[in-house]
Amino acid sequence: MSTQSSLSSQRDLLYSEEEEALRSVVRGLLADHCDAAAVLARTESAEPHDRELWKALTDGMGLAGLLVPEALGGQGATHREAAVVLEELGRAVAPVPYLTSAVIATETLLACEGDAASELLGALASGRTVAVLAVPLATAPGGVLPEVRVDGEALHGSVSGVADAVAADVLLVPTRAGLFAVDAAQDGVTVEARTALDLTRPLATVVFEGAHARVVGPEAGPAVRRGLWAGAGLLASEQLGLADWCLTETVRHTKERHQFNRPVGSFQALKHRLAQLWLEVVNMRAAARNAADTFATGSEDAHVAAALAQAYASPATVHVAEEALQLHGGIGMTWEHPVHLYLKRAKSDSIALGTVGRHREELAARVNLPAP
């Protein structure tokens, strides 16, 4: 692709009217069903995922099928629309498996051909089935995949650190013999919840002991790479929504909190810190929108855009969340205030789908500039 055509495909990164309308509807739904107190209470329960919210997002709005073609029962939308949804879910740290099922698992299946993959995509589009790619959350695109042994149609092995596995109906398992789909509720499959820093996106160890599996793709590698790259690119939009909430709430708090009969936000030192956070969020928006647009247009630069977005967004989101906690003062240090949920999600996202260092190495290798 020439430089001119590459620039023209990314020229308009502003939100369209349709995207803004989608944002408004999703934000309104989350305001009614996913307030901070409810999220916090759910993290302390035995059911971390909000199944009612997932049903509202999927049955009511069809958001699980945004990336699925209409011919397979989906919405036939693009990654730009999915990115808008993820922004809003990030703003609410919503405990739903949208990134793992509606993005990563869906993109993985879209790389497969045949009736088995098509049938499962239709089930995912409806939202009544949740699928999760059985790899550790920290797995980078192109990274080493876990070893699961295949004996005929039975799987043996274990995978640790799988995000949202406790909510999955179907597990997509990459093996040397291909990509397999496994019903999570059957005998021979054990999903053991593990303690995670981010309780809104729980982790689990999945153990296969002779579990019956069906083939959905003859080669797992290309399909998994497609799913993980799309996940990394759109994860930046979730991080953007998270950081934007942190900045907005911190500005509001510093306007309301008074010291020496003045809003604390009027002090010059805090103004400088807030201005720096604003710059980081603005830059993050540009990187996240660029990544979503390159995937939406099928650009050959999509992997570069995803690596760039993660290399910038991951540390920036953590910094914004840390500053939000600090600038909220004493109340920010309490469990009752939701800012700690955002800091934990930011920390978790910073190592999800590849670390910052891994994505910087990816960028350096593509421009022939290896690290010293």
Rank of each mutant, 00 (worst) to 15 (best):
L7E: 14
S9R: 12
R11A: 15
L14G: 07
E18K: 10
A21G: 05
R23H: 08
R23N: 08
V25S: 09
A38R: 11
S45V: 11
D50N: 12
E52D: 15
E52N: 15
G60K: 03
A71S: 09
L72Y: 02
A77K: 11
T78C: 01
T78I: 07
H79R: 03
R80H: 02
V85I: 05
E87H: 06
V93G: 00
C112P: 06
E113Q: 12
D115A: 14
L120T: 04
L133M: 13
L133E: 13
L137N: 13
L137Q: 15
A138F: 14
P146A: 07
V148H: 07
V148Y: 08
V150A: 05
G152A: 09
G157H: 03
S158T: 07
G161A: 12
A167R: 04
V170Q: 01
L172N: 06
P174R: 07
T175W: 00
G178K: 08
A181P: 00
A181D: 01
A184E: 06
A193V: 13
R194Y: 01
A196E: 14
D198H: 07
R201Y: 10
E209D: 14
H212E: 14
A213L: 04
R214A: 10
V216L: 06
G217K: 04
E219I: 12
A220V: 10
G221P: 09
P222M: 08
R225C: 05
R225H: 08
L235M: 11
A236W: 00
G241T: 04
L242A: 00
L242V: 00
A243H: 02
R252M: 03
H253C: 06
K255M: 11
R257Y: 14
V264I: 14
S266E: 14
L274D: 01
N283S: 10
M284K: 01
M284P: 01
R285E: 14
R285T: 03
N290A: 13
A291E: 13
T297K: 15
G298K: 13
H303G: 00
Q310P: 04
A313L: 03
T317L: 04
A324M: 09
L327K: 06
G332T: 08
E336S: 13
Y342V: 05
A346F: 07
K347V: 13
G357F: 13
R366L: 12
V367E: 11
P372Y: 08
